[in-house]
Design a binder for these strands. Structure first.
Lengths: 88, 88
DNA sequence: TTTACATATTGACAACTATCGATATGTTTT
DNA sequence: AAAACATATCGATAGTTGTCAATATGTAAA
């Protein structure tokens, strides 16, 4: 039994900025530009974090013109819980 | 709001070997020597991982003579869940 | 009181990660 | 078509992490 996907998920959660992003997205979909305003990081850094969250399948994106809208997957908590339950 | 403790917890979960250790401890308390037999890592590496799990308060230890016995905290799942619920 | 054993610590190293300036890409506006 | 804007990618760098050999520490057995 290997846990590659679960490790990826917990790695995505193992960063202060990303936890804050998840909290911000909890209210609903947000534009990257809005996230950028709320966080104290440079634009390439935000882009980097969003990629990690999307790769972990925690966050969805929707492109609209020149804006990127990110949203937490609706069953995010269950998704993490299901991962947890594999070994705990 | 900062998430220092939560990041520490998720970092502890963000490693293949440590997830496997947690799975092994799910059966109940185990001696370090037993864990060492089940995992394909060197003894200092196990010691390192156990320290991270103990620091994250996911795992308790009990010293008995020259043996160290490690066990998962009984409310481990709730403990993680409570952390999750801070931002999700 | 040696010797053997279980675990922790140290030191070194390679791999990974977060960060940001510079730049590229793609879109809208003028 | 040019300028302005939003986001992604690249390249570099500092800091962190996983790993193990060597060694230290502490305990039990001979």
């Amino acid at each position: 039994m290997t846990y590659r996907e679960d490790v990826k998920l917990f790695k995505a959660l193992a960063d202060q900025n990303r936890l804050q992003i998840i909290e911000l997205l909890h209210d609903g979909e947000k534009c990257a530009c809005v996230l950028l305003e709320e966080l104290n990081i440079a634009q390439p850094t935000l882009s980097h974090h969003m990629k990690i969250l999307v790769d972990a399948e925690l966050v969805n994106y929707r492109k609209e013109g020149k804006w990127m809208h990110y949203s937490l997957r609706d069953d995010a908590k269950d998704y993490i819980l299901k991962s947890l339950e594999k070994f705990i």
